[in-house]
Design a protein around this nucleic acid. Structure first.
Lengths: 342, 342
DNA sequence: AATCTTTTGAGGTGCGCACCTCAAAAATGA
DNA sequence: TCATTTTTGAGGTGCGCACCTCAAAAGATT
């Protein structure tokens, strides 16, 4: 008997197939004694439910909605592209993945649609969003209604989500810090840090990690105050110019969020390309080109395709009550240089 | 009709279910006209076979044998561990993965078992091995017998395998070179390269890539001749000592294969830890500890778990005649520093 | 036109499981 | 003890597909 079936299980437990079914699918009307008997038999013969056959019999697809904020950042576009690509490929596996965008600025723009979701029609949701009280409460209600939920990219620690799929941003910042330290010649040096708030998911953690790694390993390096662009290219340009002028001895820049296009243009104009170490976040068209053209030294990124696929697998495992392969679902903090780009 | 079934397909094609079955499973006795009719209907209604239901009906598991050379290197142990871990997890998906080791030194040790494999009992094989004429021919015969085959870690370019799952070692070497260059202060410097032949899969490519990246981006850096340990700790120790003595101004070491334990011990004894940049390959206990203890600056590695899982998925997709998600199966050249280790 | 061959259709069975109904058995209460 | 409730069993159906058999229809050959 290579793989015990429910029939084998019924025999082993000394009960009927109907009872086995009741226990396996936690249907009511079974005494605890009998439940235990079946569960013991499960252990004894090593029964593992075939999820494929189960879902086939259930005759239902696995429906998932992915919520991604709208906006014109390249990073968001990449996320959406990853979702749509995964949706296409996952259709074969009876997964119905739908991308739904929401107004990023309005904290209720996501809560509303979430409240409209019923466990009758949707099995799970993937959420990319910053935790706000309305969102937190909406996710909690959603979970209570029996809908599985995972957060991607940015954690929702107090929302009662099932899992967070993404990188540890403190560690990402540390990684950038360690790299920056190793790439600068020993001795005193100044390093700038920039971000553009909205896209700068978890910039605080990244900054903290960056500072810590440098303080621990490279105490001679001075990290300037964070330059914030607030998603405004002009504003960012002005702020960056000021920093460059005030610090002619600047040796490195850590770009934690968007605004890389502005940064690279400015560095080029200032004749600093190649003379200032640049570490940026997320692989986008700009950062990819930046690496290729030796205008960026390293990019810290996460595999968005992996994140989305992992989110789907995790949601599905949750519903099928299957274990999760932690190793497979772990999102790595990737370091990209010109040569390991593709 | 959310997902057309073979019944819908039969209707759309204007033929019977039996004929649809004959066409889909390429059974004989169908006129070309009819075949075309069915295939056109497939396109028209967008029929996609449900691989789960198909395999359920086929009532057969997916049997795979993974061939890994024996030996006492840490890298090989990691591979074996990854195979066994995957085997356990894949059992749920009706995949029967078996690890089979072979004598690495004997070119026929792998060819023999491969010749013994029949497509009746085995669906696919995963091979980690260096290409030799006997192996190449054995793999070719295997493929002719209808058994799918993928190579992992090291490519078998002339063996007619279905896919290679692993990194491009030239690019890996380039990556190491770029990192080394960026981590050394500008100006002239000497860098050593070491390997320990047997475990040093594709060391030639790595060396080549390393040299190229440095020559292109950091022409001031001089790369010394490769130190070879031939899997002998004493020999390696002696050779390394000689290099260190002859080059007191050595600033970096690129370890392409095994022997990292010897290297790190030696550097520690020579008081060079932290003064010489060290880039090593493959994440093992030694390199992991080395990173943690700041004795290694960076490790170039590949996710072995990913490789094995990818190999299984690829073999399965091949048998089920499903498309392969290139993006998902791509193995990345990972750069690890202390802070993005886990 | 008669025979032979190739092609097609109709129908059934089972993979492992979910889900349903109805009756029988067991446990519980009065 | 009998009536009531709870628990269990027996049996069936269908998910989408593979695979099998046998007969009918369509072509090809003489």
């Amino acid at each position: 008997m290579l793989r015990p079936t429910i029939n084998d299980l019924a025999d082993a437990a000394g009960v009927s197939l109907a009872t086995v079914d009741r226990v396996l699918n936690s249907r009511p009307g079974v005494r605890q004694v009998t439940v235990d008997k079946v569960n013991q038999a499960v252990e004894k013969i090593g029964f593992v439910r075939d999820p494929f056959a189960a879902n086939l019999a259930r005759k239902r697809d696995f429906k998932v909605i992915a919520f991604v904020p709208n906006g014109d950042g390249q990073f968001l576009s990449e996320i959406c592209a990853a979702v749509q690509k995964t949706a296409k490929a996952a259709a074969v596996d009876r997964v119905d993945l739908i991308l739904q965008q929401f107004e990023a600025d309005d904290p209720h723009a996501l809560a509303g649609p979430l409240d409209a979701i019923s466990s009758e029609t949707v099995d799970g949701v993937v959420i990319m969003g910053l935790e706000t009280p309305p969102l937190r409460d909406a996710v909690r209600r959603l979970r209570l209604r029996g809908v599985a939920a995972v957060a991607i990219v940015s954690d929702l620690p107090n929302s009662g989500i099932d899992y967070f799929i993404g990188i540890n941003n403190l560690a990402a910042g540390r990684t950038a810090g360690a790299l920056m330290g190793k790439m600068l010649p020993s001795g005193p040096a100044k390093v700038a840090v920039m971000t553009s708030s909205l896209q700068a998911w978890d910039s605080l953690d990244r900054r903290l990690g960056f500072d810590r790694a440098l303080a621990e390993g490279f105490p001679d390096i001075e990290v300037l105050a964070t330059v914030e662009g607030h998603d405004d290219p002009v504003l960012l340009d002005t702020a960056l110019r000021r920093v460059l002028q005030a610090n002619p001895d600047l040796r490195g820049i850590y770009s934690m969020g968007g605004g890389n296009r502005v940064l690279l243009t400015l560095l080029e104009q200032a004749g600093l390309t190649g003379r200032v170490r640049v570490i940026a976040h997320e692989l986008t068209q700009t950062t990819r080109d930046g690496l290729r053209q030796d205008r960026i030294d390293a990019v810290i990124t996460q595999d968005l395709g992996h994140i989305v696929r992992s989110a789907i697998r995790t949601l599905r495992a949750t519903r099928d009550q299957r274990p999760i392969l932690a190793e497979q679902e772990r999102i790595r903090i990737e370091i990209l240089v010109k040569d390991n780009l593709d």
